[in-house]
């Protein structure tokens, strides 16, 4: 287990050095995006329109933050991760087209995303579910908000972060998926527990 402290933009080479179970802290820029933002970004790409910012080497955070405006400035109140599986249907194309190197969320992602991460060089960093205060503390400022018409939780919040983490590398760029490993082990364990308790022969 190695701890990485990286500054954005993150290169493919840097990403390829990381393995599942490693710990990552990010300084620089991360961008929140949920279903709606993923959908629109891919639509823009298809239509040849450019995104409001270049996502190459940045981290995308599955998060619908609570934000308030204080004297013309946006302030993050809480910013915990949301369940990532909802973005599974978009993420492979997203990584391919925009060269995002880090995806941050909770609960992990599936096979399609894992394959795309291996192919194009990206990782999934699991942030502790619900740990909203920890996340908010690492966010030094809201740099900008785009696509606000999607609503506060769905908009693209472009955030300046300092030592954002700890992120546990749960999918690496070598085809490993920690959540999948745990799930299959859990199923094996389930049978062992049944046996131990005499629930099956």
């Amino acid at each position: 287990m190695t701890t990485f402290r990286l500054v954005t933009p993150i290169s493919e080479e840097q990403v390829r050095k990381m393995n599942v179970n490693d710990i990552l802290y990010i300084t620089g820029t991360i961008v929140t995006a949920r279903d709606q933002a993923h959908k629109r970004a891919l639509q823009f790409h298809e239509e040849g329109k450019s995104l409001p910012l270049n996502l190459e080497g940045l981290a995308v955070f599955h998060c619908g933050p609570i934000v308030k405006k204080e004297r013309e400035e946006w302030k993050i109140v809480a910013a915990g991760p949301t369940t990532s599986t909802r973005m599974d249907i978009f993420e492979d194309q997203f990584i391919k087209n925009f060269k995002t190197r880090v995806i941050i969320g909770k609960g992990g992602m599936g096979k399609r995303t894992t394959e795309a991460m291996q192919k194009y060089g990206a990782i999934y960093g699991a942030f502790t579910g619900g740990a909203a205060v920890l996340a908010a503390r690492a966010i030094t400022r809201v740099k900008k908000v785009e696509w606000f018409d999607l609503g506060m939780p769905e908009a693209l919040w472009i955030l300046g972060v300092k030592e954002f983490g700890p992120l546990t590398v749960a999918i690496d760029s070598h085809g490993n998926n920690l959540f999948e490993d745990v799930r299959s082990k859990t199923e094996e364990n389930q049978k062992l527990i049944y046996k131990k308790l005499g629930l099956i022969k």
Partner: peptide, 11 residues
């Protein structure tokens, strides 16, 4: 606790 799911499902 023998399931091995662990904190946040990371084992």
């Amino acid at each position: 606790n023998q399931t091995g799911i662990g904190p946040m499902g990371l084992g």
